[in-house]
Write a protein that binds this DNA or RNA. Structure first.
Lengths: 189, 189
DNA sequence: GTTAAAGTGGAGGAGTACCTCCGATACAAG
DNA sequence: CTTGTATCGGAGGTACTCCTCCACTTTAAC
């Protein structure tokens, strides 16, 4: 074990060789699906099977369950941050609402991520903070335009929305209704 | 196995003998704590140990995990329904808000119950429906008084609030802030 | 106090998940 | 093509959970 890696992830590194990289990526994809379906306790052997690799390969790339989870989670968060860029040129309120809708979409089937979203994990903190910064920029803009109430923080907002999503709704229409109610609560009056 | 019990619960019955009743109640209490701490996958052996009984006793009283879960769940729901009576003489909006606060309080530490609240289980359906009726009465009253928006159902409402609670908040003040936003979203304008 | 019936509890078999280890394999540099 | 090396994969040891079974204990009716 090298003693001064200096990278962000403690033990997880995308491998060099082509076949190894394929396996690495397949494992993350399989883990994403498995966590979404079975929750964060999904069997690691099943994840390896889904990815079409041996259990040993899983453990070499991700020594602990948390390492694997962090890799999946970081991917998702990065996608959300990119989405914040996509809405930057909408009017303040629309930008906030659109991004929150996308946030909900990303989280909709990902129970494990919702469960874990508030937990602390040394290496994840950075990714989560950049997501919070993205949300904060959108919320602040809406607040400065006088469109959003000023007594909520972006932390309040994301916890509220991710909680809402955790419910497991009868259908998309219901989820949309509930999201509308939440947005109306945030709008200043 | 008796073939025509005719009771509401399929296999669960509060036992007759004093010592057996003590064990039965201790098991439900221990299960409530264990489910709250560890989620619905808590080890049954640990529950038996916490209750101070053998694993055999647990299985005699609750042949399946679901039976035990149902017993805990039904208890909680009944308490919530009683709480709906307590707020009946408040003004419509205050009654709804007060009951939802109590609802949140009950659910606050009960991850397992939140997880399960939308799942279907033959014998639980009755209990859940009476809770929904209680919520519906309060919401309808507020709607008829022109205080609550009419485009949400009690089902929407409870899913939304129980989702909010699932988040895991930094502190009570944050949870209260988020609940206030949700209530403002429900209030008609 | 006696006794039949109800209830107890934990040993142990079966199944499953975790994780390590190392002989076999596939890549890529020469 | 050859060869050194990175990588693979799954057998198997360990640990944990589920659940059954039955010799023993407690209750409460008489």
């Amino acid at each position: 074990m090298q003693t001064q890696p200096g990278q962000t992830p403690p033990g997880v590194r995308r491998p060099q060789r082509a076949d190894a990289r394929r396996n690495f990526d397949a494992l993350i994809a399989a883990a994403r699906d498995a966590f979404a379906e079975r929750g964060s306790g999904a069997s690691l052997e099943e994840i390896a099977r889904r990815a079409g690799v041996g259990i040993g390969t899983l453990y070499r790339n991700f020594p602990t369950r948390q390492d694997l989870f962090d890799a999946v989670y970081t991917d998702e968060i990065e996608a959300l941050c990119r989405a914040a860029g996509d809405v930057a040129d909408l009017p303040p309120w629309d930008a906030l609402a659109a991004w929150l809708r996308r946030f909900v979409g990303y989280l909709a089937t990902k129970r494990a991520i919702i469960e874990e979203i508030n937990r602390d994990s040394a290496m994840i903190r950075g990714a989560r903070e950049s997501m919070y910064r993205a949300a904060d920029a959108l919320l602040t803009r809406a607040q400065e335009a006088g469109l959003a109430r000023t007594d909520v923080s972006s932390d309040d907002l994301l916890r509220m929305i991710s909680g809402l999503t955790a419910g497991g709704y009868v259908d998309d229409a219901q989820r949309e209704r509930v999201l509308t109610v939440a947005l109306d609560g945030i709008r200043s009056r």
